[in-house]
């Protein structure tokens, strides 16, 4: 159990680091698009590590008990949560970015804007 706990702590520390970086980025970046970079990438990656910590602990309990219990089932649920997180986080970011551009938000300090003035509607 000792080694398992160490792995869990390492995952939690990495996860927290990336989540904190995401929060700092949210405050430091100049406009909505660059902030979305920080908000989507860092929090997704950080949460992956937090979920992996849950999986490690839960699989450890599973291996110890040798049977499915409410705690070992947590690993399956965590995997499903991970997949849902990966899909919804990226999709949500698209929705926000598209809405921002359509409402006239200009990318700050941009060197190029191919989408400028284009009206893509559906």
């Amino acid at each position: 159990m000792g080694a398992l706990n160490i792995v869990t702590y390492i995952f939690i520390v990495i996860g927290l680091f990336f989540n904190v970086v995401g929060c700092i980025g949210l405050n430091r970046f100049p406009d909505v698009y660059t902030r979305l970079h920080a908000a989507t990438k860092c929090t997704t990656f950080g949460s992956i590590f937090l979920i992996m910590a849950v999986i490690v602990q839960s699989v450890g309990i599973w291996a110890m008990e040798g049977a499915l219990s409410s705690q070992s089932i947590l690993s399956i649920h965590a995997v499903i949560a991970l997949v849902a997180l990966l899909i919804t986080n990226a999709t949500g970011a698209h929705a926000i970015a598209r809405a921002a551009h359509r409402s006239g938000e200009k990318p700050a300090r941009a060197v190029v804007d191919d989408l400028e003035g284009k009206d893509i509607d559906d």
Partner: peptide, 21 residues
């Protein structure tokens, strides 16, 4: 790689953004 890169840009503030097609 992306996350290390974004973490670096968050901490140093070195960005050069743009929208490309």
């Amino acid at each position: 790689q992306a996350n290390v890169d974004v973490a670096y840009r968050v901490l140093t503030g070195r960005i050069n953004p743009g929208i490309v097609k």
